[in-house]
Nucleic acid binder design. Structure first.
Length: 559
RNA sequence: GCGGAUAUGGUGUAGUGGUAACAUAGGAGGUUUCCAACCUCUUGUCGUGGGUUCGACUCCCGCUAUCCGCACCA
């Protein structure tokens, strides 16, 4: 990078943004009320584009055969996001310099004095701040206020009055897939692997949204949670990904290597992660991302969340430089385990052992009839303590319970347990590989890559070279002139097309024919249909393709 | 959040202490036998709140938004 946008694009970004606004693709939201930072409208053309991208995404994953689609609420109870770690993780710990009023992040101030202050809890940070006494980066004084947590999630209250419970707008869609795990597992006949996808809105109350569509406060995301059995070696066919792609591995150097090779050389550390990298590459290619401006970047070990095993971002190059648009992470069992711990509900899958395991149980347990009346409320804790003893323990014995109390256990309170158990399998927490897509960022780059203002015969001319798979309008229908019945016939063709499932057609009769082609090109309509004099005689029309300008004559009935 | 700049029809811009202009786009009509042509008519603008003033789009202050840099950013 290092090249500023102005040098790079010569005003292209401004012209593109202006066009997107003028043509109803992307517009600042609520503009008549003064606008709102980090919030955008998809306009009459953009709304359709977004839907097409979402649909293409959905179809891409559903085609794998073991993926289901769900939809969960955006309003999320406090407890869910506390369990997932977001209440802690999505907070910035702020402290204010009482000398100059400058607010700083406590963990950033303490970075020189601690290997990973980001991981500390509030009270630990406060302690460290008191000990270290860092000086204010703005004024040099050392007068810090109490640390406060600044949460990046939107707060809300679910319910009214005293019955209202605290909640948040979700910062990601993923938690819905994790909290729905029992239903997903049952639906999939209790067999791994399987996946669940969800497309929806996420919310982050960014301190400073910037760069248009790149950092939003409300954004469209699409996530896949793929649940796998960590005891099984995954089998994926990488034979379709032998073309070299750009990889920036952990070490920092840029490699040109196929995904196939990267997996076999263990640069991509988990085959399922590699498989989804390949699938993601194909998806982005299919919807029209210029794959020459796409690269995979591996998270460094210290950048990765502590539970993640391997994590790759897909970065796409556009007017804002290289932007992270997709993250593909191996999250281990972190999420399901977290919800399991918080709720006490089992979020597991069953696997049968190749051979049953025979377990010799040789130890002690309490004799309920004797120990119960003696230890009363402590009986449960005593039982746990006794069962942790080895087979050669002797009684009477003084045991320290977890609660700190000591009890004397007599020989009559316990009995010997000696038996053999055969275990045919076990319950385990599945691991998760999560490809997470920022739809808005992807749409931005689709537009950015498709926007071609190369000109035509020396004149300024812009074409939006969107893929047919996502183009918001499929056809424009023009009467060459709106007379002699050409207008009526064109309208007829137009409504005939609109009536077809999934087809969007626009009718345009204003301005010269060239102007209408230009308007259609600007929003990326792949094909324009023109009704001319000949159409009136033989019921054929010309179909002109956007990228080549070539026209074919086609019978109306064959459209 | 800090610093700097900016805010005029849909879009891009000009301009002034006496209620605004140009281009382009849009609409109607005409013309035109396929790539932003032409002619006529026409719609539409000073981000927002306050102050100074006889009078503010213009000067001052606040707010909001946008852009750039810093900081922040699974």
């Amino acid at each position: 990078m290092g090249v500023t946008m102005a040098e790079l694009d010569d005003g292209r970004l401004e012209r593109l943004s202006g066009m997107l606004k003028r043509r109803g693709i992307l517009l600042p939201a609520f503009e008549i009320h003064g606008g709102a930072k980090g919030l955008y409208d998809f306009g009459p053309v953009g709304g359709r584009l977004r839907n097409r991208v979402n649909q293409a995404w959905l179809n891409h994953w559903l085609a794998l055969g073991n993926i289901v689609e769900i939809s969960s609420p955006t309003v999320t109870p406090y407890a869910v996001l506390e369990a997932s770690g977001h209440v802690g993780e999505f907070s910035d710990f702020m402290t204010v310099c009482e000398a100059c009023g400058e607010a700083s992040r406590a963990d950033v101030l303490l970075e020189p004095s601690h290997p990973n202050p980001d991981a500390l809890a509030l009270n630990e940070l406060q302690q460290l701040l008191n000990t270290v006494q860092p000086s204010c980066p703005a004024c040099g004084e050392v007068q810090w206020s109490e640390i406060t947590a600044q949460n990046l999630m939107f707060n809300t209250t679910i319910g009214a009055g005293s019955s209202g419970r605290p909640g948040f707008l979700r910062p990601e869609t993923a938690q819905g897939m994790f909290t729905s795990y029992p239903a997903l597992y049952r639906h999939n006949r209790e067999r791994l692997p399987f996946g669940a996808v969800q497309i929806g809105k996420g919310y982050r109350n960014e301190i400073s949204p910037r760069q248009g569509m790149i950092r939003l406060r409300e954004f469209n995301m699409a996530e896949l949670e793929y649940f796998i059995n960590p005891f099984e070696e995954p089998e994926h066919d990488f034979s379709q990904w032998t073309e070299p792609v750009i990889l920036i591995a952990d070490g920092g150097e840029e490699l040109q290597m196929s995904l196939n090779d990267a997996v076999s050389k263990n640069i991509i550390r988990h085959p399922t992660v590699g498989y989804f990298m390949g699938q993601t590459y194909d998806f982005l290619n299919n919807i029209g991302i210029d794959t020459g401006r796409l690269r995979f970047r591996q998270h460094e070990a210290d950048e990765m969340a502590h539970y993640a095993k391997d994590c790759w971002d897909v970065e796409i190059h556009g007017s804002y430089g290289w932007i992270e648009c997709v993250g593909i992470a191996h999250r281990g069992c972190y999420d399901l385990e977290a919800h399991e711990k918080a709720t006490g509900k089992s979020l597991r899958a069953r696997r049968e052992f190749d051979e049953p395991k025979v377990v010799e149980i040789d130890g002690w347990t309490t004799d309920g009839a004797k120990a119960g009346p003696v230890f009363r409320a402590l009986a449960g804790a005593v039982k746990t303590a006794v069962e942790s003893l080895s087979s050669d323990a002797h009684f009477p014995q003084v045991l320290q319970l977890e609660s700190g109390e000591s009890v004397t256990v007599e020989a009559e309170h316990v009995k010997r347990v000696q038996r053999t158990e055969t275990l045919t399998g076990e319950w385990f927490i599945p691991h998760v590989v999560e490809p997470a897509f920022g739809i808005d960022r992807i749409i931005w780059h689709l537009l950015d890559h498709a926007y071609d203002e190369a000109g035509k015969e020396g004149e300024d001319y812009t074409i939006m070279r969107l893929s047919e798979n996502v183009a918001p309008v499929d056809y424009c229908v023009f009467p060459l002139f709106e007379k002699d019945g050409m207008g009526e016939l064109a309208k007829q063709v137009h409504s005939q097309l609109c009536a077809k499932n999934g087809i969007v057609s626009m009718y345009d009769s204003s301005g010269s024919i060239g102007r209408r082609y230009a308007r259609a090109d600007e929003i990326g309509v792949p094909r324009c249909i023109t009704v001319d004099h000949q159409s009136l005689e033989d019921k054929t029309v010309t179909v002109r393709s956007r990228d080549s300008g070539i026209q074919h004559r086609v019978a109306i009935d064959d459209l």
